[in-house]
Design a protein around this nucleic acid. Structure first.
Lengths: 206, 206
DNA sequence: ACTATATCTTGACATCGTCAACATCATGTG
DNA sequence: CACATGATGTTGACGATGTCAAGATATAGT
């Protein structure tokens, strides 16, 4: 591995293959993902990927894991840079949907169970770490007395469902069949409505 | 076609193939769906399906269309049997999630764009007819003054996103990683929270 | 220097989607 | 009734894919 490109060993084939998956999805959609095409793009033989990932689901499991890590980073940044719990709650929601729309080459794989190895510990951990950020945001609004007498876990799940639903629906393009409104504007409108879940008062009686 | 089973012509192969798709998904998941397996289950040759559906996406497009029709029926029933707009709104939400969970052999195909023929008029119509029921429910709660000063279309999209998100998240089993609560109970809790979007007053000033 | 191991290649196999050519049935028209 | 036409289904083939076994090559530890 002095530096040559035609070395027998690739150097970091694992990373190259994961990158290739993203490329393929952006170029031709999830349906076009194949071990052989990823191998082709990485410049290796057709069955090299199996040595790193076992099988196709192994590759996609690793890819989804990487997606959840990026996902977590973006939500964490949103949480950290918000001035108060209410703003953080909203920022996380926007980060969730933004990630889904802008990095859908990850998002589309992350929530497709049949493409993953079942009970993969790394994937599960990455997923849990990502949603821990969302749960932390809900914990903070609850502590600030902004959820009234609602069950915080229920608030968290409701918020999660709403942003997840927005993400998946927007990705399919379905909403555009029912309104001429710009999808970005529509998104903001839906955010406003869905935040009715938060109590208006500030010095709330927890 | 006197009655024989070994007749050269099947009789209703189209329906048999659509049924077969559902069987395959229930038995082995969406990944196991193939034209050849559907043909096998219908007892015809491997390329018979192409004459009815053109290609694999054609079969799945027809299958998704049938799914949206059943979906619409169930939401319409929920809407019709509710005593008032608020109850109708809630009933539709429950019907949406129930359909996704109980008939997920349809749901998983219906919202997977890459499996459909693009801009298929029958599929689009079936989808629009289904969501028209949800929109009608929102129209009724708006007319009853239950949405405050919110934009009814935004309320509709928010409700849609929430139930759609619940459906897809519950199907992945993700929520069970964050709570021990029974998923049915959790579902009801989330419904309660998300219905905060509706105004409490009854003789609302529309 | 030597060996064990990780990494990658080669070749093969069954399955899949798709296509072209052909076979069989149904229908209606003279 | 004869028969032509179109719909329906079959057969055989092709390239692409996921997976596996066997072999080749590089790396690392001793």
């Amino acid at each position: 591995m002095t530096k040559g490109k035609q070395a027998y060993h690739h150097g970091d084939l694992r990373t190259a293959l994961l990158d290739a998956v993203g490329e393929i999805i952006r170029d031709s959609g999830v349906g076009a993902v194949s071990l052989r095409e990823a191998a082709r793009r990485a410049g290796v033989s057709h069955s090299a990927p199996a040595h790193h990932f076992g099988d196709k689901n192994g590759l996609l499991t690793a890819y989804a894991t990487r997606g959840f890590e990026i996902f977590r980073e973006q939500m964490q940044t949103a949480l950290d840079s918000a001035p108060d719990p209410r703003a953080a709650f909203q920022a996380i929601g926007r980060a969730y949907v933004s990630f889904a729309l802008e990095r859908n080459e990850y998002f589309e794989i992350m929530f497709r169970e049949e493409l993953h190895h079942s009970e993969d510990p790394e994937l599960d951990d990455a997923g849990r770490r990502a949603f821990a950020v969302l749960l932390e945001a809900v914990r903070q609004v609850a502590e600030a007395g902004l959820v009234g007498d609602k069950n915080p876990m229920h608030v968290a799940m409701s918020a999660w469902a709403t942003v997840h639903g927005m993400a998946t629906l927007w990705l399919t393009g379905a909403p555009s069949k029912f309104t001429d409104e710009d999808l970005g504007t529509l998104l903001e409108g839906v955010f406003e409505v869905s935040q009715t879940e938060l109590v208006e008062a500030e010095g709330g009686a927890a």
